[in-house]
């Protein structure tokens, strides 16, 4: 029984972390789908979101929920600016050039954050409505912070799903991702689609940041979680939003289990071992579609 409880606890923790990975992965997937670029700055966007919410809550004394909304808006604006200033002029340039630019952006954001007074290189935390509250179920304990992550992740996935499936703009984005030229001919403004994609992706990063902040605390290097989200996105096939979340859950749960039941060191590479194993068997990831060029 004790073993069972411990197992449940471990898996539940894994699910919460997995949802965060999934959310960052969702950002990867959105940008990849419309521009075929991996955005290496996604983790840094998350970090920036966490810092913004930290300032709003502890320095401006806003309530958690107001801070959440403001952070989402602020990050959306950051995404739109990035797209307008940097990425728009690279449309049509080779993909690798754009990928390198996103790496440049990640360097830039990280060091700018370290230079801002009140942020810098220190570690911060803030109180949320979920702090120190727990849900007990026998011996299994779940903190409200973890629950909030899971619930919000589910809401977000549903929102993204509905947006892509039923809204006009979502349909336009899907069309653009399949064939930009055809989309232009159909009267879709590809620039607007890109702009919106970056806005949404950055806003998602911001939400990830505010949710993750109570768990890992706010600091300059929390963006490295973006690297963990990469295998999540790849596992899901890199083009499927639900796939990203499932990938995130697989990675989160595996890591959590490896952390408890395996020797030290396995936790960090468990995700990668699973990823490589899956790719060897299914080169297109779990939910990707095998593409064969026609000749």
């Amino acid at each position: 029984m004790e073993f069972f409880n411990e197992l449940t606890q471990t898996i539940l923790n894994g699910v919460a972390i997995g949802c965060i990975y999934g959310m960052v992965a969702l950002g990867f997937v959105l940008i990849y789908k419309s521009t075929e670029v991996i955005n290496f700055a996604q983790g840094e966007l998350l970090m920036l979101g966490a810092f913004i919410s930290y300032s709003l809550i502890t320095q401006l004394h806003l309530s958690y929920w107001t801070a959440l909304v403001v952070t989402i808006l602020a990050m959306g604006i950051v995404g739109a600016i990035l797209e307008r200033v940097v990425l728009r002029s690279l449309v049509g340039e080779p993909t690798y050039a754009i990928v390198i630019v996103t790496i440049g952006i990640s360097y830039f954001i990280r060091s700018i954050v370290s230079m801002i007074p009140g942020w810098g290189t220190d570690t911060y935390g803030f109180r949320t409505p979920f702090t120190d509250k727990f849900l007990r179920w026998g011996d299994v304990v779940i903190s409200y912070e973890y629950l909030s992550i899971v619930v919000l992740a589910l809401v977000l996935i549903a929102a993204v799903f509905v947006f892509f499936g039923y809204s006009r703009m979502g349909t336009a984005m899907r069309a653009t991702s399949q064939n930009q030229l055809a989309a232009v001919y159909m009267g879709i403004s590809v620039t607007r689609v890109f702009s919106l994609t970056w806005t949404i992706a950055a806003a998602l990063g911001g939400i990830g940041g505010i949710l993750l902040a109570p768990i890992t605390f706010v600091h300059m290097n929390m963006g490295f979680i973006g690297l963990k989200a990469v295998p999540a996105a790849v596992l899901g096939g890199f083009t499927s939003p639900p796939g990203a979340i499932v990938g995130g859950l697989i990675i989160g749960i595996t890591e959590s289990l490896a952390g408890v039941y395996l020797e030290e060191g396995w936790k960090d590479i468990a995700a990668w071992i699973i990823l490589i194993a899956v790719l060897i068997i299914r080169p297109q990831g779990l939910f990707g579609i095998q593409e064969k060029k026609k000749v």
């Binding site: 940097v86 390198i100 630019v101 790496i103 990640s106 360097y107 830039f108 954001i109 060091s111 230079m115």
Partner: peptide
């Protein structure tokens, strides 16, 4: 942070 910031900026500019 100045050095890495400029570094990142220059990478972006070169590309």
């Amino acid at each position: 942070g100045l050095q890495p910031a400029l570094f990142g900026l220059l990478i972006i500019l070169v590309m």
